[in-house]
Computed example of a mutant assay.
Amino acid sequence: SLVDRENKTLAEHNELKKAEDLWNRVKRMDGSGWNNDFGRDDKKRSESSSVKSKHRLERERKDKEEEGKLEQMFLLSEKRDQEKARDRAKKREEQRELAYKMEEEERRANIEREKEEALRKETPRQSLRRLYEPIFRTLWDLEFDNLNGANPFRIVIDKDTCAAIGAPDYCEVVKKPMNLTYIERKVTDEDYETLQEFFADVELLISNALLYNSSPSNEYHIAALEFKRRFKKLRKSLLTSLQQ
């Protein structure tokens, strides 16, 4: 209708008028106005970015602090675990040592009980043998430097062997031969009934050696004197211990 067309024309005129007014205002504005507006926007964006950066750095700092705390807690926990493990190992070692000591004490006690039991059961000759056998073993093990470490008193010399060892007249001079081998048999068989019987055989061995090798310079005579000295010392020690 005519009214509608007039209203439309009026509206278009108003819009055009607004556009012209806006354009005129723009033309009157210098470049600084635009620049200031854009500068303010840049400043706002920069400030916003700076704030965000600070917030990010603060979060990173807090995260690192938390990580440090967690690491310290982990190290502390690990240290406590290690200390507990060392304590457990130490206790186990102490328990093993205690068990070993108890076993050792029990073993020694058993040995002592066995010895006591054996002593109660042993015969008089067995008891006597425990006294003289150490002396015999010492005499058997003697070595003589002047004879290149040999011990001639172990050798059996009788009428069957004297010629073979270069002493054919031995049995003519020595009426009752005696040597450590003879004595060993009697020790093993527990033939001695008294200490004096054992001592007598050793003394007979010495006297035979000195009799047949009568020269003081004879190497067997020298060895016999050393044998005698050692025997007298051992006998004295035994008799002294028995008197205490």
Rank of each mutant, 00 (worst) to 15 (best):
S53D: 08
Q72M: 14
K43I: 11
N213R: 07
S127L: 12
D30H: 07
E58F: 13
E117I: 12
L139M: 15
L119T: 02
R28S: 12
R56P: 01
Q126L: 02
E93V: 12
L119E: 14
S53H: 05
F144K: 04
H221I: 03
E122Y: 06
G31M: 14
E193Q: 10
D21G: 07
K159S: 13
I111R: 10
N208Q: 07
S241K: 04
R59Y: 05
L16S: 09
Y170Q: 06
L70H: 08
K52C: 08
Q95C: 09
K91S: 09
V174W: 00
K175H: 12
L70E: 15
H55C: 10
W140C: 08
M73N: 14
H13Q: 14
M102P: 00
K52E: 09
E114T: 14
D158C: 02
S1K: 05
S214F: 04
F231A: 03
L211I: 11
V202M: 10
E190H: 01
E105W: 12
L147S: 02
Y100M: 14
L210P: 00
Y182A: 02
S237N: 08
K64A: 13
D189L: 07
R92Q: 13
R130G: 02
H55K: 15
N36H: 14
R88M: 12
R96L: 14
R230S: 02
K232N: 04
R5W: 05
C171P: 03
Y100S: 13
A163L: 04
K236T: 15
R92N: 08
I155Q: 06
V156I: 13
S46P: 03
K159G: 00
A19Y: 10
I222N: 01
K121F: 03
R92I: 07
L211D: 10
R154L: 03
L147D: 01
R120F: 02
K8D: 11
A150R: 06
N110V: 11
L119V: 07
V26E: 07
T161A: 04
K64D: 09
H221Y: 04
R107L: 09
N151R: 02
R56M: 08
Y212H: 01
R235W: 02
S53V: 05
R107M: 10
A89K: 08
E20I: 15
E12Y: 12
T123W: 06
Q196K: 09
L16K: 15
E133T: 05
L128K: 03
E114V: 12
T123L: 07
E97I: 13
E6I: 14
E6W: 11
A167T: 11
S214P: 01
G166H: 05
E197V: 05
R45P: 01
D63H: 06
R230W: 03
L57I: 12
Q95N: 07
L180S: 00
R80E: 13
A224D: 04
K79L: 11
R96N: 12
V187G: 03
P124W: 02
D160W: 03
K64F: 08
A209I: 01
E93Y: 14
R25Q: 10
S77D: 15
N151Q: 01
T161C: 09
D63A: 15
K18D: 10
K62T: 04
C171F: 08
E67G: 03
D141V: 06
E106K: 15
W140N: 04
